[in-house]
């Protein structure tokens, strides 16, 4: 499979204020601080992290809401950020997003027809867009008479289906799903997830799936990356990731998941229990940013930031336990 979208050394820092006597020293939040990954064609790449880890900032940078502070994102080999040049309409069409809360991402004063029509008007105006809109609603399994409804007349799951229809209106090849089901109940989540999987097969879509729910990730992603305080800690194939988590943070998260069966209980790492909280991204700890919470902390960890090391083929970890100086595994 070829890489569709690649992020290299992506950084996004926000200046939130000034400090110092003359207020000249900027206070920055390093929301994303050197992230590299590649999303392959037709796959679902999962990006997992707790709140404040920077996963949504990555998404918003990809769709162009933010300019990266450093680093770059390439789509089909072409950089998405070329100086001050505006992104071409052809690229915008290809990259779409579904947001977490459909209650606030759909305009309450517009009908479903108007909502789904907007991207069509911008990217491929037609005289009579109605047949296309009805077809889009059919694709997400909504009845055609929904075109005249307003978002508040729909249930949470149905709203999210409208948001998915809107994202698909421009025939994209890459869709970012930013926590698409975390505002929904499990029975509805199941429906939306299966719909997304069907759509992916039918239209050969590539997904960047952002979530904090690792159990969900196990069922949708082909590869998983885990983020902590703006950096990626571990990337691996989904099956490998859950069978063989290396990074202490991954192990801690996995051990914290509430599960419903004994078979799942066995997959949870036992020796690590969760402790501490994610620090403020304004004051990121020195060295490896996870060291204050890490049960396997060494002296080196607070001084030096580890590098990404490929421990096994396709499985990279950013932890001193696995760095070459430590003799790897």
């Amino acid at each position: 499979m070829t890489d569709l979208l690649t992020a290299t050394g992506l950084k996004k820092h926000f200046v939130i204020g000034q400090s110092g006597i003359l207020k000249r020293k900027p206070i920055t939040v390093k929301a994303v601080d050197g992230v590299s990954f590649a999303v392959r064609e037709g796959e679902t790449f999962g990006l997992v992290g707790e709140s404040g880890s920077g996963k949504s900032t990555v998404a918003y940078t990809i769709i162009g809401m933010y300019q990266p502070t450093e680093g770059n994102i390439a789509f089909r080999g072409q950089s998405l950020f070329q100086g001050d040049k505006k992104r071409s309409s052809a690229v915008k069409k290809e990259i779409q997003i579904v947001f977490q809360d459909p209650g606030s991402s759909l305009n309450p004063r517009r009908t479903v027809k108007q909502i789904v029509e907007l991207p069509l008007q911008i990217h491929q105006p037609e005289k009579d867009p109605l047949p296309k809109i009805v077809r889009l609603l059919e694709m997400v399994e909504l009845p055609p008479d929904y075109v005249h409804k307003y978002p508040q007349m729909l249930g949470g799951g149905e709203k999210q289906m409208v948001a998915i229809a809107r994202a698909l209106a421009t025939n994209p090849s890459f869709v970012i799903l930013d926590e698409p089901t975390s505002a929904l109940d499990v029975s509805i989540q199941a429906k939306i997830i299966n719909l997304l999987i069907r759509l992916q097969e039918e239209f050969h879509l590539s997904y960047l799936f952002i979530t904090h729910d690792l159990s969900l990730m196990r069922n949708v992603a082909s590869r998983v990356a885990i983020m902590y305080l703006g950096k990626i800690c571990e990337i691996a194939e989904a099956a490998e990731f859950f069978r063989n988590p290396y990074h202490p943070y991954t192990q801690m998260l996995l051990s914290s998941i509430p599960v419903v069966s004994a078979a799942e209980e066995e997959l949870k790492p036992k020796k690590i229990t969760s402790r501490g909280e994610i620090p403020s991204p304004v004051n990121v700890p020195s060295g490896c940013s996870f060291h204050p919470r890490c049960p396997e902390k060494m002296d080196l960890c607070s001084m030096e930031d580890p590098l990404m090391v490929e421990v096994e083929e396709g499985h990279t970890v950013r932890c001193h336990l696995f760095s070459p100086e430590q003799g790897g595994l």
Partner: peptide
């Protein structure tokens, strides 16, 4: 039963289709 099936499992293998209707 419907709820249990709809819960994503760490063991993987996909999710059942949930409960129809609302």
């Amino acid at each position: 039963l419907g709820l249990m099936k709809a819960v994503p499992k760490l063991t993987g293998g996909g999710i059942a289709d949930g409960i129809p209707g609302r």
